[in-house]
Design a binder for these strands. Structure first.
Length: 378
RNA sequence: GGACGGGUGGGUGAGUGGCUAAAACCAGCAGACUGUAAAUCUGCCGCUCCUUGCGGGCUACGAAGGUUCGAAUCCUUCCCCGUCCA
């Protein structure tokens, strides 16, 4: 695997236009990665994802370990073969579940003890175990187990989360290299994750420690979990200023359509977010003019497509009135069509961002998107 | 003709003297969703007034009367509906 800007432009402000080569195809960056926690992007068939041009999707260590089990997936040829997805996959480590399943877990220096949300059984996820699971899954990019905390957080909590995340990163890295060997880097990468809540010095400290460990790529975690967007940007900027320029940076779990270009401008190459898929299932449609809550009565007789400016197969064929009806009737097709459109919107948005970087007018593009979103849909 | 049972807000349906503008669910309306315990969750949902307050007024539990300080709840008559008997 390798990451390069060869023949590609880097914008002065920090935005980068790159290419990440994986065993499952190239990834043009900046990239948006649809989330497919349980080896599927909810309500989308892989055929649709391919049609939409998804270059890489996410899977989740914690979920796939619990069900169907990483050993089973390994036996069946790895995650790519198991789910019949031949493009790239990044697996999250379960670190986010440390945060989102906070009532079901206990953290120690050893690792995280979870009570399964499926059957209540107790499981211990250690940095080594998370790496082992992801090696079995065979994702193109594996994440280290980290301690993700909510923001804002008291400094003491943030400090100890950074300390633990650093120690875990070291262990995860050692274990990973031991198992995969240095040559393992050819087929699977492992990224470290910066923590530090909303404290700039802790963010720098965390990044510095990870750089010393030396990963092929770095993620910024624990953001967009409660703090204002401006703070998310400040923290991201602190980190990207330190990270090696020749390695990919991944801002985890973001963001809203009008925020994405901001992160790119700060030097972020990769992002993922459940927003387009989850919001779609909840009848929230992202369009070039802002969000459309398609269940609203005002769309009952609206014969326009979800987004008149969109060229996706859903917008080419179906009306707002029809989508509204499908949601009102609780039909599964509503989720399928809405998700398809929202993912198209996100991937297309990122495509436009890549283009804007190449033309050197990302800032202009970004402010146009923001203005359209502020104005709202017609 | 007789015997029971029943008529509650847009729907289903609790409530059987004051805490009831009336549970709950559905429908309806609006909103949220950021490394997915999410096809989920939240708010509103009789009308009206304002100094928007766990505020005021009005109307409301088939109809009309009555008992009571107070009635969806008790009594009387009537009108409907269901089941059974002739």
């Amino acid at each position: 695997m390798n990451f390069s800007f060869a023949g590609l432009k880097t914008e002065a402000g920090g935005a980068r236009r790159g290419r990440l080569m994986t065993p499952h195809g190239p990834i043009e960056t900046p990239v948006f990665m649809p989330v497919g926690t349980q080896a599927t992007v909810k309500s989308l068939r892989n055929e649709a994802l391919e049609e939409l041009g998804a270059q890489i999707i996410l899977g989740n260590t914690y979920h796939l370990y619990l069900r169907p089990g990483h050993e089973l997936i390994r036996k069946l040829g790895g995650l790519h073969q198991f789910m019949s997805w031949n493009r790239a996959i990044l697996t999250d480590s379960g670190g986010y579940q440390v945060f989102s399943l906070s009532e079901l877990r206990k953290i120690t220096d050893e690792g995280v003890r979870f009570r399964s949300h499926l059957d209540g059984a107790e499981h211990l996820l250690t940095p080594e175990k998370a790496a082992e699971i992801q090696l079995a899954l065979g994702s193109d990019i594996a994440m280290v187990l980290d301690e993700c905390i909510e923001t804002p957080a008291p400094r003491g909590i943030a400090e100890s989360a950074v300390k633990r995340t650093t120690a875990w990163a070291k262990r995860a890295r050692n274990f990973f290299l031991e198992c995969a060997g240095r040559n393992g880097e050819l087929s699977q990468w492992q990224f470290g994750i910066v923590q530090g809540a909303t404290f700039a010095d802790l963010r720098r400290e965390s990044a510095q420690r990870l750089i010393e460990i030396d990963f092929p790529g770095y993620a910024v975690g624990g953001l967009a979990v409660g703090e204002p967007h401006s703070v998310t940007c400040e923290m991201t900027a602190e980190v990207t200023a330190l990270l090696p320029k020749d390695k990919p940076r991944y801002l985890m779990g973001v963001g809203r359509p009008e925020q994405i270009a901001d992160y790119v401008a700060l030097g972020i190459d990769m992002m993922d977010c459940v927003l387009p898929t989850r919001a779609a299932r909840h009848a929230c449609i992202y369009t070039s003019e802002g969000k459309v809550l398609i269940k609203n009565a005002r769309y009952a007789q609206d014969e326009r497509p979800l987004d008149p400016a969109c060229g996706c197969s859903v917008c080419r064929r179906y009306t707002r009135a029809y989508l509204r009806h499908l949601f009102a009737a609780g039909e599964l097709t509503a989720a399928i069509l809405a998700t398809h459109h929202n993912i198209h919107f996100y991937l297309d948005l990122m495509g436009q961002i890549r283009e804007a970087i190449e033309f050197g007018n990302l800032a202009k593009f970004s402010s146009e998107v923001r203005m359209r979103y502020a104005a709202g849909p017609a």
